[in-house]
Amino acid sequence: MNIFRLAGDVSHLVAIIILLLKIWKTRSCAGISGKSQILFASVFVTRYLDLFTIFISLYNSSMKIIYISCSIATVYLVYFKFKATYDGNHDTFRVEFLVVPVGGLSFLVNHDFSPMEILWTFSIYLESVAILPQLFMISKTGEAETITTHYLFFLGLYRGLYLINWIWRYYFEGFFDLIAIVAGLVQTVLYCDFFYLYVTKVLKGKKLSLPA
């Protein structure tokens, strides 16, 4: 464990909590892409199946349980409890265009052709594009609530910190996982446009509105 990976995990946890609190407190999931939340829940479920097979550390197991439960709770809030506030008309990204290629690629490019490894690879590839429905929805509505931009900032930051963690681990431990690194790069690059808007607008107190 190094400071960048810990900061990344904390940033990820902050993002997940911000979203859950935003929906719970405002009793509304306006502006939130339910499709992205379903993809994130799938990412955690397919990646953390080893929760029951191997024990790495209390930290590792408890974070996995928190991520899985918070993401499933968020999906429940969006599609059931606060379904009336779900903006389905703008959450129209065709997720099959993500899941099918990612599913195929995880069978073709992986470290080991075993069920657990293929599911892990699927989860890594899926996570790198899971935010697309959310970014697509913001581009369609032309704006995002400020709290939603903070959620996206920490979510994008987390994998960026993981990239630094992988540089650190390669340099000090000789460890590197090309699949995770390439997917992490794609994932972080997808946020660049948002990061620019976040820094130039939201951090200056303006609302995030895209030129519609």
């Binding site: 990976r5 790495i56 590792n60 991520y67 470290h111 080991d112 993981y162 963690n165």
Partner: peptide
């Protein structure tokens, strides 16, 4: 290749 890297990351 079965060099599955250790999965100690989240």
């Amino acid at each position: 290749d079965t060099d599955t890297v250790p999965k100690d990351e989240l």
